[in-house]
């Protein structure tokens, strides 16, 4: 584990250098050890891919030997010992997300099919046939970065991002796929849309998904999409 400062606000713990389930398992085991340590000075714990970033309140730690940063590093080293090399179990929870593929719901699906040299049906079958893992939540509130996209569906991002992507858009960017929880600019290729709400500010937690969740997409018809809404 490598520890580095993120300015005067956080410590970044790096636990690997790859985007894979094994690294994510270690990241999540470490993140939950930090959460369990219940240090009052820790304000946020952000696991993402291969790192866990731990935000702290420096004022609460100023009288610690070596200063606030050193004090947080000591806590994190103790957490690393406790978490050990045993990765957290992934995919304990599977969330099924219904998607209406193509047409107005997925305006880039023809482009994706053409780029991947397959039919639209094949794109849908491949995308909805795979198991995905949430590696991080970010970009916008509740946006899941999903790993596990079939190699055959890799497509580059758009040269010019759209200035507004509709809420619920399901998209592919390079070797990742994700869902835009709210209208936002976006550079990924949109292949479908879900009526499911991925960010619900009045619920706790507000984000439907969290790192380590398993996700599956299930095709739905335009009729079912409109009914759901």
């Amino acid at each position: 584990m490598k520890l580095q400062p993120l300015g005067d606000v956080a410590v970044v713990a790096t636990l690997g250098d790859a985007i894979d389930p094994e690294t994510l398992g270690r990241v999540l085991a470490f993140a939950s050890a930090v959460g369990a340590a219940e240090s009052k000075a820790v304000t946020d714990i952000v696991p993402a891919y291969a790192t866990v970033t731990v935000f702290y309140d420096s004022a609460a730690l100023h009288d610690q030997p070596g200063g606030a940063y050193e004090a947080v590093c000591r806590v994190l080293q103790a957490c690393a010992l406790k978490a050990g090399a045993k990765p957290a179990a992934l995919g304990a929870r599977t969330v099924e997300i219904p998607v209406c593929y193509g047409e107005d719901y997925g305006p880039d699906i023809d482009l994706v099919a053409e780029h991947c040299r397959m039919g639209v049906d094949e794109v849908i079958a491949l995308h909805s046939g795979a198991d995905y893992l949430v590696h991080a939540i970010g970009f916008t509130p509740g946006f899941p970065y999903l790993g596990g996209l079939p190699e055959a569906l890799k497509v580059p991002r758009k040269d010019t991002p759209r200035s507004r992507v509709p809420a619920g858009s399901v998209a592919i960017g390079n070797s990742q796929t994700g869902v835009y929880p709210m209208p936002s600019p976006g550079g990924w290729q949109i292949i479908g849309r879900t009526p499911m709400q991925l960010f619900r500010p009045l619920k706790d937690p507000a984000s439907l998904l969290k790192p380590g969740d398993r996700v599956r997409f299930k095709p739905m018809s335009p009729g079912d999409f409109e009914l759901w809404r």
């Binding site: 993120l6 005067d8 956080a10 970044v12 250098d17 993402a48 291969a50 970010g138």
Partner: peptide
């Protein structure tokens, strides 16, 4: 780089 957390000030 692999994405990691950023914050105001970065």
């Amino acid at each position: 780089l692999i994405s990691t957390a950023v914050a105001p000030g970065t």
